[in-house]
Design a protein around this nucleic acid. Structure first.
Lengths: 218, 218
DNA sequence: CTCATAAACTAGCGGTGTAAGTTTTCATTC
DNA sequence: GAATGAAAACTTACACCGCTAGTTTATGAG
């Protein structure tokens, strides 16, 4: 087949289909040939639109990141904004858990990821956090969210009662974790996030507010 | 070559070499043929000792997890034990960051990972946390540690000043993050862990201690 | 109308995990 | 001590992988 009258592929269609395949079958199951087949095309044709497979994955990752809402940093206090962002971030990642390991490499050059980092860091600095602290807070929350989305804690335990009964006295109920996956994973996230933010709020009053009150107000 | 007089391979030697290759060149660079070559052997010979490549990776992951120290749960109060564990866990993972994405799938059937989960959960329950809470706390800390080890936050940003200057006003210094990788990543971990534990301590006095004091002492 | 570019194709390279079957040695049993 | 079965190396081979190179033809710009 020569060049068709209307292009069979677009970047958007490729990204869309790749994400669907990743969601359905996992990151490891995405090959250029399988992706091309799903698009009704031969494998190497993809390389007319993307230079490498990683470039496709970058684009997929960025559409996932694009769903994260950082608008709170423009309208709410820093603590509420952090909470909203963390939940939105988590929702975006858990909607497409299979891409998370790839995404966890950092923002790189992906625009949506950079825009998110910019909004979070800017919001924290504007709230009075020293720059180094703002970096640490953004990183800490990313650690927590990414870790929580990377793999279900609950599904990490095999559903085999005998495995635990034999040698792990406290894990006798672990085989039932998978049944309650969502409530376990979300409960752990909620508890951890609340604890984290509680601790940050204490740190804020301890450092930022006292420092500011000791200075002439700007 | 037929069966040799003394075995050329042992499970330990395979795991050791696999970990060294992963540390050196990354998880993606570990192939059965390259691993076999490093062991002075042909690729398929590995299958006399492991059924699949994943089984090799399981063994590698478990030796990494085996370096985590959970002894604090037997000797110290729950808060100090959690802190010691989290740092030890992080050190174990950051010593072999390339295996972390694999390890993040959960304990599965790996003995060291299960023993760790058992110690943490048991320690928290013994301290008076309700079982569901203990699960959430263990999960939340795993999220945080795994997220922090999964990929460096600092190295996630490209060293290209022009990238940030153009469109991300608050990230003007982001290209310098990689220079300070260790202090950024460790600082973020320290801050986040302290905040998390601070929040948990508050929760403990709010729920566990008040509930116990309302009951007849056991 | 010309012509470079774009977008599909086919063929193929070197790599992957692993299944199958072969050979020889080791360890066990009669 | 001979027989036997398992163990541990090997070779060969299959289907798949990411990607390159070169081909063909339609498109859009000059």
């Amino acid at each position: 087949m020569p060049r068709p009258r209307r292009p069979l592929l677009t970047r958007d269609r490729i990204v869309e289909t790749a994400l669907a395949l990743i969601d359905a079958d996992g990151l490891g199951a995405l090959s250029t040939r399988r992706l091309a087949a799903a698009l009704g095309v031969q494998g190497p044709s993809l390389y007319n639109h993307f230079a490498t497979k990683d470039e496709i994955l970058d684009a997929v990752a960025d559409t996932v990141t694009g769903a994260v809402d950082t608008s709170g940093f423009a309208s709410r206090d820093w603590l509420a904004a952090l909470r909203d962002w963390a939940w939105s971030y988590r929702r975006a990642l858990t909607s497409h858990p299979n891409i998370v390991p790839y995404l966890a490499q950092g923002p790189g050059r992906r625009p949506a990821a950079l825009a998110m980092a910019d909004a979070v860091y800017g919001g924290l600095v504007r709230a009075g956090w020293p720059p180094a602290r703002a970096t640490h807070i953004g990183a800490a929350l990313r650690y927590f969210v990414a870790g929580s989305a990377l793999g279900s804690f609950a599904r990490g335990f095999v559903e085999d009662p005998e495995l635990y009964a034999a040698h792990y006295p406290h894990l006798r109920q672990a085989h039932r974790l998978a049944e309650h996956q969502q409530s376990v994973d979300e409960g752990a996230f909620a508890l951890g996030l609340d604890a984290l933010l509680h601790g940050l709020a204490a740190e804020y009053t301890r450092t930022v507010e006292t420092v500011e009150s000791a200075r002439p107000t700007g």
